[in-house]
């Protein structure tokens, strides 16, 4: 970066000297100097950042959907609350960390608003309801691995892989419950 700035300054100074040397043609020379493209500071990995915002948004929506499913399952089966409470707590942690990652420009709703139960179809049988949650966890884990591969930030990729690992363990635990 420092080298880049120094180079830029040198180029501009050299251009200025050329302009002064060409004094008789002041008008055109100055016009040329004014047109001199001053290199703007690099925009950074703007594309990468945009890409990760989309990935993060997808992960946030998925966490909200899972929390909604848990809420709907608990509404239909209050007896499962002790079993499922630690699972929802971990998803809330995921959601917090994903939301803390930065602003989400596509946000139409408050990402931390409590999920609304009822949108999901919950089986009347408790065991079948748990199996449905396990299936949703398994699908979410696969989607987060895919997101991990799409992420450009390395730290963010590790967080997504870790979320996937938690969800896969959730699925396995619920399946064997």
């Amino acid at each position: 970066m420092v080298t880049g700035v120094t180079n830029t300054v040198d180029v501009r100074r050299r251009r200025l000297l050329i302009c002064l040397a060409g004094l008789p043609m002041l008008g055109t020379a100055l016009a040329a100097c004014a047109d001199d493209a001053v290199p703007k500071s690099a925009p950074g990995h703007r594309l990468d950042v945009d890409m990760d915002v989309k990935v993060r948004w997808r992960a946030v929506e998925a966490e909200r959907a899972l929390l909604g499913l848990y809420a709907a399952t608990l509404t239909a089966h209050p007896g499962l609350s002790d079993t499922l409470a630690p699972f929802t707590a971990r998803h809330t942690e995921h959601l917090d960390v994903l939301v803390e990652g930065g602003p989400l420009p596509f946000s139409a709703s408050d990402p931390l608003a409590p999920p609304s139960p009822g949108s999901a179809d919950v089986p009347a049988d408790a065991a079948a309801a748990l199996a449905a949650v396990a299936e949703a966890e398994s699908a979410a884990a696969e989607a987060r691995v895919a997101d991990c591969l799409a992420a450009s930030g390395s730290r963010f990729a590790a967080v997504l892989a870790s979320v996937a690992a938690c969800e896969a363990a959730h699925a396995a635990t619920l399946e064997s419950a």
Partner: peptide, 11 residues
Amino acid sequence: PVAFPGLSGRP
């Protein structure tokens, strides 16, 4: 189960 396997505490 832990919320963030492989990451120590909160990422």
